[in-house]
């Protein structure tokens, strides 16, 4: 039995003052995620990843199509007791403590009273928030809130978890921990569906990935198949919002997303790149060899998208 079956979900928003101009957020999407998989949902910002997740969570209603989760209709409220969801950049009730918040969510998910405090305690420990469990959430940093978000998603021991950009806002240690956690979840037999725009995360974790762009599924495949050949490229990720000229000089393709910049350069330029970042005092987050075929695959899909979009206009 597949964990997720998306059967032609489609969403068109109507925008403008009179709500007459249609804007297609998601073209009919067909996708199946098997039980026990870690599935990566890749695409640049605004590709339709979050829309897909919101449709599956019943937060927005589809224009057409349907889905099945864990073998049941996705609108069935009971199925939601088996699902965990981490929204993008989560934000919670300011005046609650982490402990109170998790208790509240456990109550809503129907975790029985006796088990509740034990479950909250162990989840807090799992995401490393035991020390600050009595602090009100308005005093939490972005990274700590992300951990709270992950905690609330796995709190009720769901069979299927959805993470929307789980690594955003985390420092390198945090990213490492979240990766480990996702792998643990897989070992516990759970299905993990997560969206990201960072290829290295997907590559390190996923069994399979799907690439979505401009609301359209561009490709899908097992990571193992896609990363068969290895080219001499490395992915450099650093914290910052601009690309120094010295990096550009290396011929790097740079993508700025949020507060991180991602660049892909030749392997032999890796020392020069590190030097350039050091000179600019930009904190390095990751340096990983790229199995270029995923990269190439991704870029190819995106470029195809761009040419179609270009010709469309």
């Amino acid at each position: 039995m597949p964990a997720i079956e998306i059967l032609g979900l489609e969403k068109t928003y109507f925008v403008g003052f009179w709500r007459k101009r249609p804007k297609c957020a998601l073209r009919p999407l067909h996708l199946t995620v098997e039980d026990g998989e870690i599935f990566g949902f890749l695409g640049p910002n605004g590709a339709g990843k979050t829309t897909t997740l919101k449709l599956l969570m019943g937060l927005v209603f589809p224009t057409s199509g349907s889905a099945r989760l864990l073998g049941r209709d996705w609108t069935d409220p009971e199925v939601k007791a088996q699902i965990g969801f981490l929204p993008e950049q989560p934000y919670f009730y300011d005046h609650l403590t982490a402990n109170e918040l998790l208790n509240y969510y456990a109550q809503l998910s129907g975790v029985p009273g006796k088990e509740r405090s034990r479950r909250v305690e162990s989840t807090l420990q799992r995401v490393g928030l035991t020390d600050v469990k009595g602090v009100q959430l308005r005093k939490f940093s972005k990274g700590m809130l992300q951990r709270v978000g992950i905690a609330q998603a796995i709190l009720h021991d769901p069979k299927l978890v959805f993470f929307d950009e789980p690594m955003s806002g985390l420092d390198p240690m945090g990213r490492r921990e979240v990766r480990d956690l996702m792998e643990q979840l897989k070992h516990e037999g759970k299905t993990v569906f997560f969206s990201t725009h960072i290829l290295s995360d997907a590559e390190a974790l996923c069994d399979r990935v799907a690439i979505i762009h401009q609301g359209e599924l561009r490709g899908i495949g097992a990571v193992a198949d896609l990363t068969s050949s290895v080219h001499g490229k490395v992915e450099v990720i650093w914290q910052g919002t601009h690309v120094p000229a010295s990096m550009k000089a290396l011929g790097a393709e740079c993508h700025v997303t949020g507060d991180t910049v991602r660049a892909v350069i030749d392997e032999n330029q890796q020392d020069a790149a590190i030097d350039a970042l050091r000179r600019e005092r930009l904190p390095l987050i990751a340096l990983t060899p790229v199995r270029t075929s995923l990269e190439a695959y991704f870029v190819e899909k995106l470029q195809r998208a761009e040419t179609t979009a270009g010709s469309g206009k």
Binding site: L59, P77, E78, F85, P87, Y91, F92
Partner: peptide, 14 residues
């Protein structure tokens, strides 16, 4: 606005 509703309605809450 603060998207707290997302984490509530993704639970078995009507």
């Amino acid at each position: 606005e603060k998207r707290t509703l997302y984490t509530v309605l993704s639970r078995p809450v009507r």
